[in-house]
């Protein structure tokens, strides 16, 4: 089958931005942490966009995937560090566990929640998130509310030097890679049958069914992909980077809301949107924390309300309309 390269042109600006971010962070002293934070937000935005942006379903429990990804990494490092000789493989085992756990919860949610629409779907997802969190705390699974700490295990396997390298550098680089993957998957889906099906589902699900679209199948594909990417981000950006996990820290709806804000700011259902939104959100949050520590939320909340009411289509939504019919059009979706 011939591959139409032109379809992937929109990735050029995305990867250019990521490369610039990476180089700036790598070579300008003191900026790595900020760049890593931005990459985290962009990666989350893009991962979340795959499901929500294309189907219009609001997965308010998205943070469940990130949280379970974190637990996957925590379990990988904690339990497999006991086997000598595994070395770096425990990180990959952690990633596999992250995928495994997120698949389980995705099946739970997809099997049931995806049959519900609108408000009921949002509530069911929140329900699963809270149910899992309190189940872990209540039944004292994986350390219960005391969580898991595994810096010691990490140093035992890799030595302090490498452990520091892993948590402060490689975890962040991995987030960049996941972000790049998420961008590619976004474009791939948008330009394939899946994207057409998801758009049809977003606009009119019943009509989509009559047109021959197996709505459950396509929703599940998008949901799983989105969940897996979220779990990978969680495994790296939280699991490996922080070397601890507490249920009360990770199953927090606030993070879902951050994802929504990022995607909506940038432009829902677009490729560049989550990237632009992630940058705007990350930078302004970082900046507000410096100039007005403690007041970020107080300032953010009204601004977000105003932006959503005034520009529901987001930055890229507006740009897209502007470039329609020009040569830039093929690069911006």
């Amino acid at each position: 089958m011939k591959i139409n390269i032109a379809k992937y042109y929109p990735l050029i600006p995305v990867y250019a931005v990521y490369l610039t971010m990476f180089l700036v962070g790598f070579f300008v002293p003191g900026l790595w942490q900020l760049v890593a934070l931005l990459a985290f937000y962009c990666a989350l935005g893009q991962s979340w966009n795959i499901f929500m942006g294309m189907t219009g379903y609001v997965d308010f429990g998205y943070v469940t995937f990130i949280a379970l990804g974190t637990y996957g990494m925590a379990l990988g490092i904690t339990y497999f560090s006991q086997f000598p000789g595994l070395g770096i493989a425990i990180i990959f085992i952690g990633l596999l566990l992250a995928l495994f756990l997120s698949t389980l919860s995705a099946i739970l949610e997809a099997g049931i929640a995806l049959r519900l629409r609108g408000a009921y779907f949002a509530i069911a997802c929140i329900g699963i998130n809270e149910g899992l969190r309190h189940l872990i705390e209540g039944a004292k699974i994986w350390g219960g509310s005391e969580g898991m700490l595994y810096w010691k295990e990490l140093t035992e396997v890799f030595g302090t030097e490498t452990a520091i390298q892993l948590t402060t550098l490689w975890a962040d680089i991995a987030v960049f890679i996941i972000a790049a993957m998420a961008a590619f998957i976004n474009v791939y889906y948008m330009r394939s049958k899946i994207g057409y099906a998801l758009t049809a589902i977003r606009e009119d699900e019943d009509a989509a069914k009559v047109m021959g679209i197996d709505t459950t199948k396509y929703k599940t594909i998008a949901f799983l992909t989105s969940g897996w990417l979220g779990a990978l981000v969680g495994a790296m950006a939280w699991g490996l980077k922080l070397t601890h996990v507490f249920p009360a820290d990770v199953f927090v709806i606030h993070y879902t809301v951050e994802c929504i804000v990022i995607v909506v700011l940038g432009g829902i259902g677009t490729l560049l949107g989550p990237l632009v939104g992630g940058l705007i959100y990350g930078l302004s949050k970082y900046w507000l924390a410096i100039i007005l520590p403690g007041f970020q939320l107080l300032i953010f909340a009204p601004i977000i309300i105003c932006i959503i009411i005034a520009f529901p289509e987001g930055v890229i939504g507006v740009v897209k309309r502007r470039v329609k019919g020009t040569r830039l059009e093929r690069y911006i979706i």
Binding site: V257, V264, L298, I305
Partner: peptide, 14 residues
Amino acid sequence: EFTTLLVTFAIGIL
């Protein structure tokens, strides 16, 4: 939905 969910959440934060 996403706008109403986001906005009501933001009102709560406010």
